[in-house]
Design a binder for these strands. Structure first.
Lengths: 204, 204
DNA sequence: TTCATAGTTGACTATTTAGTCTAATGAGTT
DNA sequence: AACTCATTAGACTAAATAGTCAACTATGAA
């Protein structure tokens, strides 16, 4: 069997953190190796390039994120409450990142996508797919809310895209301003877009 | 007086285009010089660093953009029509970029801001200010629309921030997808957020 | 016509970076 | 205990990149 190792995993973790707290272009392979405690030879044993590593890392990360999303968007929870929960979760998560790294980091998918989309087509496609997945959670909650009569939204897909754009826009603003304040408006904005009269109480 | 030259302007133009069609981190000083037809010595005669050049270039560019915005958001135009015009303008502009560069480029301010905010604080601050300026145009239109009774929005400032987040989110999505399609929903979404019943006819 | 000076040139250095290669190492298998 | 092979070490090359410098050039002013 030969040696076993978690160097591959350490590399993926390292590149995620470096890209997220900095940027893709600014992250060098040497930096990644150092942070992961892995030598260059091992890097190229596992991955062909930085783009290759980033693609693998984001794929893995998305798989984990999805488990979280599955729980937040549980069908057992009333649909509008799912949205509220997601906003609250997001706010807390970004606040945690701020105390951990001293910076509000926003959405790694969106930031990386915007940065590399003109240069790394493989990565671009992958990110596009993940964003589409993300949209599905919103879409399903909106459809359920419509079916339950809580809102009028026969166009769940369009509404979901609209809300995703808004949500990602807010996260990016928060990143640029290095301030979670913009995120406090997330739920309010979403419910306004959905034409909700009385929104569920925010826990933030 | 010594020589006169437009090398400084050429450098600013070049860096804008390179950042916009690619990214900040990916753009080298050599590339900038080559595109501008300027030698490295001259680069450092005018600017201390890439960040310094980018800051100057974006400042200049914003001054020009503002003139356009002043015209689109003219107080002589009914307030909701200003918003519609802005959406139409934006759509056409991005479509033009797509045919010129083969790519939908989105908002350079937002893309650069998201990329460099953790690394270049001076640039970050500058971008934040420009985005705040941009928000003012929306805010004023919303306030006017409220005053005229066309919409109910006593909270013009908050609404403007909300719309900006949405708008920038859509532009970034369009950039990532390399497709102007998401932008066709811009006005519809904005008017939904403002609770407009019948929106002015889109020209797109 | 000369002069001061804004701007130009390109060669040069030092560093960083990506990527390669070969010999060593060690965990499990037999 | 010997063996296998996944993994590691780290030295090495080549290229890209940032930044410097001193000599040169052209322009408008006097």
């Amino acid at each position: 069997m030969g040696r076993v190792s978690n160097a591959k995993e350490r590399l993926m973790e390292a590149v995620l953190e470096l890209i997220w707290t900095g940027s893709y272009g600014n992250t060098t392979i040497d930096q990644i190796c150092e942070k992961a405690g892995v030598k260059k030879g091992s890097f190229y044993y596992f991955f062909a390039s930085k783009a290759d590593l980033a693609a693998a890392a984001f794929r893995l990360n998305w798989r984990l994120k999805r488990a979280e999303m599955d729980s937040i968007f549980s069908a057992a929870v009333p649909p509008l409450e799912r949205l509220q929960r997601y906003c609250d979760f997001s706010y807390h998560f970004q606040s945690e990142m701020k105390s951990k790294y001293g910076r509000v980091l926003g959405c790694p998918l969106f930031a990386l996508g915007s940065e590399v989309c003109t240069q790394e087509d493989r990565l671009r496609r992958q990110i596009q797919e993940m964003l589409a997945d993300k949209c599905k959670y919103l879409e399903s909650a909106i459809r359920d809310a419509h079916a339950s009569g809580a809102i009028h939204a026969p166009d769940a897909e369009a509404k979901a895209r609209m809300i995703l754009a808004y949500y990602e826009g807010l996260l990016t603003q928060a990143r640029i301003q290095n301030d979670v304040k913009p995120l406090r408006e997330t739920a309010r904005g979403i419910f306004a877009m959905l034409g909700v009269k009385a929104s569920p109480a925010a826990t933030v």
